[in-house]
Design a protein around this nucleic acid. Structure first.
Length: 482
RNA sequence: GGGGUUGUGGGUUAGCCUGGUAUACUUGCGGCCUUGGGUGCCGUUGACCUCGGUUCAAAUCCGAGCAACCCCA
């Protein structure tokens, strides 16, 4: 590299994580900061990542009985107030519309922070008999939560893109199965599409979604030792059905109250992806997420230009015919070194280099984005070879993520050990927990770590609560969070 | 929630202390050159975060606001 041209990432991921993250997001063309604090402009390459998330999840949703719909972005205050806990839970961060044109509104409108209050009343109208159940509605939209804390592109923005699913069921069992099915699908998205290694569990009672019976969660460990809540799936019990009157007639013509769920995943998932896999060269994308999976960079001199470009175009067509998202970078005004750097910055998982040598030998050079590993392969059977390499790249990324998770789960049996372990290493610390919020507060006040997750398995790992020493009811995972 | 740092063409930045003509690189655009890790040359467009104050004069000093980043809770 000659001179510091600052086209690439200049901050270190390890030492200046915030600045590094900001540069990756902007320089790899994912997003810009909007003029208002806490908002971003999502650029085409960033939006393509969201579309990749959508394509996978939406397919799975539809395969499991979900229909997409769309509800207004405004919710009348009187609707919001029907579920008391929703109001209390979201009140500090609701944005309000009070004026339409030049006229003051009779009733102010909330910009949705989540849509239970507008969707559930309609589900109530649409559900008459047991034959209408289960009913599963999803919408892809944005919501607004006027966060007071620091914002960060994709991780925490005042407006964010997400999907929110809302379902109604006959009974508790059916609704609980739904809750877990959606959690499984979120876990699958993280594991099989984004090459991240999440944990799954429940939120402690004091951190549930307002009004929910149970909130289940996907948690993902970041390289700086903080945990990200990657998605949530709520079993809402009967509280919303009661508040919004979702009742149905069962086979015996008796009126029953439905059980409901809601579940959501936001573009914070993209934040977790970037934070985990990107490096000091820029973005790194797992192949299923990458808008461009393979880039071909031709290398030629004046006298063999046509030959090399012709060869490169053949390769491109071979891969394109095989369904690989491939791009041939035949720009004349850039040399190969520039292109290498640029595509690395943009996170393309696999690069093919072809020059006179490769043409002569009927070969290609393949370079893996995550680690720069270079191999030479035959041109014959290229499509299959490339698929194998894409899988290898995925495996490398997943292995990194898995290691990150495993190395960051530690155990502690006393208050001081919890504080010391998180203070020194970050990451998760698991311990027995009596179930009292005070014991979390004790830790939170000291070191700003909270209980992010309680595993599903019933037996606590220790007999006593790691904080107060009373008998433990469950295991709790403490961590600092985003 | 509290504290700190910073804000100059699209990006990176000099100038600010000590007020007076805004510096360079890069990108973009036009042209030439050629290509195994950010190549070279010529030409060209483009900026002092916002509002207020001090002053003959403000990128520079003062105040407020907005924004970004960092640290603590």
């Amino acid at each position: 590299m000659t001179g510091d041209q600052d086209l690439g990432i200049t901050a270190s991921k390890e030492h200046e994580t915030g600045e590094w993250y900001s540069q990756v997001v902007q320089k790899s063309g994912l997003a810009d900061y909007a003029p208002m604090g806490g908002f971003i402009v999502t650029r085409p390459r960033g939006y393509a990542l969201w579309e990749a998330v959508q394509n996978h999840l939406d397919g799975w949703f539809k395969d499991s009985g979900v229909q997409n719909a769309y509800f207004p972005m405004f919710i009348p205050e009187s609707y919001l107030e029907q579920e008391k806990e929703i109001v209390e839970g979201f009140d500090p961060e609701v944005a309000w519309v009070t004026q339409g044109g030049h006229d003051e509104l009779d009733e102010r409108l909330a910009v949705r922070p989540t849509s239970e209050s507008i969707i559930t009343p309609f589900i109530s109208q649409w559900v008459r008999s047991h034959r209408d159940l289960p009913m599963r509605i999803n919408q892809w939209c944005s919501v607004v939560r006027w966060e007071a804390t620091d914002t960060k592109p994709f991780f925490r923005t005042k407006e964010f893109l997400w999907q929110e699913g809302h379902t109604a069921h006959h009974d508790c069992d059916d609704a609980w199965d739904e809750t877990m099915l959606r959690l499984d699908q979120y876990e699958r998205l993280y594991t099989d599409v984004m090459a991240l290694a999440p944990l799954r569990g429940k939120k402690p009672d004091h951190d549930k979604f307002p009004g929910a019976d149970t909130t289940t969660t996907i948690e993902v460990m970041m390289p700086d030792g903080k945990s990200v809540q990657g998605a949530t799936s709520h079993y809402l019990g009967e509280s919303f059905a009661e508040a919004f009157d979702i009742t149905y007639l069962d086979e015996d013509e008796t009126e029953q109250t439905a059980h409901t769920t809601s579940w959501g995943l936001s573009w914070r998932a993209l934040g977790a992806l970037i934070m985990t896999h990107a490096d000091d060269q820029g973005l790194v994308l797992p192949p299923p997420m990458a808008p461009t999976q393979v880039v071909i960079v031709p290398i030629f001199q004046e006298d063999n230009r046509e030959t090399v470009l012709g060869y490169a175009e053949e390769l491109r067509k071979t891969l394109d015919d095989d369904g690989v998202r491939v791009h041939l970078d035949d720009r004349d005004e850039r040399n190969p070194g520039f292109k290498f750097n640029e595509w690395e910055l943009n996170g393309v998982p696999l690069r093919i280099e072809v020059g006179p040598n490769e043409v002569a030998d009927e070969e290609v050079s393949l370079v893996h984005r995550p680690d720069g590993e270079t191999t030479t392969e035959s041109r014959t059977g290229l499509a299959e070879t490339v698929q194998e390499h894409l899988e290898t790249v995925y495996a490398k990324l997943y292995a990194t993520a898995e290691q990150l998770r495993e190395e960051n789960i530690r155990e502690a049996t006393s208050r001081n050990e919890i504080l010391g372990t998180i203070g020194q290493h970050g990451g998760y610390v698991k311990t027995g927990w009596c179930g009292e919020q005070d014991c979390e507060t004790e830790i939170k006040d000291q070191i700003a770590a909270e209980i992010v997750m309680v595993p599903f398995d019933d037996e606590p790992i220790h007999e006593d609560c790691g904080v107060c020493g009373e008998p433990a009811e469950t295991t709790a995972y403490f961590a600092k969070t985003y």
